[in-house]
Nucleic acid binder design. Structure first.
Lengths: 190, 190
DNA sequence: CTTTGAAACAGACCGACTGTCGGTCTGGAA
DNA sequence: TTCCAGACCGACAGTCGGTCTGTTTCAAAG
């Protein structure tokens, strides 16, 4: 990689890291571009050279977050052979990850409103949601024609339980409830 | 009610109605207070006299929407005796109502981001979610200790399927999937 | 080595927006 | 009639997102 491209990539990385922290801390609306500029020491011109606008910056941050989450989930199910068990394991891992305030605020609360539901789902499809759908299909736990819709509903349920953990009550209760919920949806183990 | 209080209430009603349409059409961020003022013919001072800020206005709009939805759901289950069937009926009705673009955009997409998840859920607790939890408890379909968490997850799943209807694919498929999903969670009918 | 083009960066500037503040008007109580 | 609180007004300040015109720097072409 040339020196120039490297510098550009480094700048983007730095900006995304800072924006990620600010978005997570104060939300999308509560974070000003000015603050990102100030903390990064960058100029307006430079930032707008790399990102078309505030929402594009947010999208880049979300992409980074989702990508990390996806990798972590993949790692958690590595070695689990039974597709059904892998599904449960992956979902529980997901719930734990989504308990991180950064993931919560950025990926679950602000993303739908900022990007619009369509773009949000499109991104999830490329990351964690894609895995969930594949796992659900592999498990053959639900009729084929329901796979997509059930995967969506499951995803929503998991996200919700992750948000509930933050509300209080401890993660143990939420984990137990989620596991029970999953077993119900997946049906009796054959 | 005195003439003054009446006038004030009428003003609030008018503003909320206009803001509701604009919020639904352009989202929270995409709607300017200025536009609300212009359409209502009100002055800035008057609006800020009634509502502390843009988010307070949004909250008032959301309150109105949720209240309507709650009433409609109550009406739909009137006459259904079996608690389990009432639960299914109410949920399906909810999904249909949430298919309305106004409800979708305001109550499902923007609300968590604008009010914050806590305030959003607190409001839902007072309306539709409160009913769902009560119905789930009455149905005795899930263990007592899971009632609250399962109700949350169910709610999320229903909301998700409502959003999916808008994405396309027709409401029939979503309804069938939701009903199947519900039956799985509630377990076999005794 | 020089030229040239493009990417990276800088920061003044603009329009739009939210929220504030002093002030006016009026219904209804004292 | 007096007086106050609440409804309403609109100018204004401050902030913010985004644009525009440069300037610097690297590297490829000549």
């Amino acid at each position: 990689m040339s020196l120039r491209a490297e510098r550009g990539a480094a700048t983007r990385e730095k900006v995304v890291a800072i924006a990620r922290r600010l978005f997570a801390e104060h939300g999308y609306e509560g974070t000003s571009i000015e603050a990102v500029l100030h903390e990064s020491g960058l100029s307006r011109g430079a930032l707008y050279h790399h990102y078309a606008g505030k929402d594009a910056l947010f999208e880049a941050v979300l992409e980074a977050v989702e990508s990390e989450v996806g990798r972590a989930i993949l790692a958690s199910v590595r070695g689990v052979d039974d597709p059904r068990q892998a599904l449960v394991t992956g979902c529980l891992e997901w719930m734990r990850l989504a308990g991180d305030p950064v993931v919560r605020r950025i990926a679950l609360i602000d993303a739908p409103s900022v990007l619009g539901w369509e773009r949000w789902r499109a991104m999830e499809e490329r990351h964690a949601f894609g895995m969930l759908k594949a796992a659900l299909q592999a498990s053959r736990a639900v009729p084929e024609e329901f796979t997509d819709l059930h995967a969506h509903m499951l995803l929503a349920a998991i996200n919700e339980s992750a948000l509930l953990v933050a509300r209080g009550g401890g993660p143990e209760a939420a984990e137990a409830a989620l596991e029970d919920f999953l077993r119900r949806v997946l049906g009796p183990t054959p």
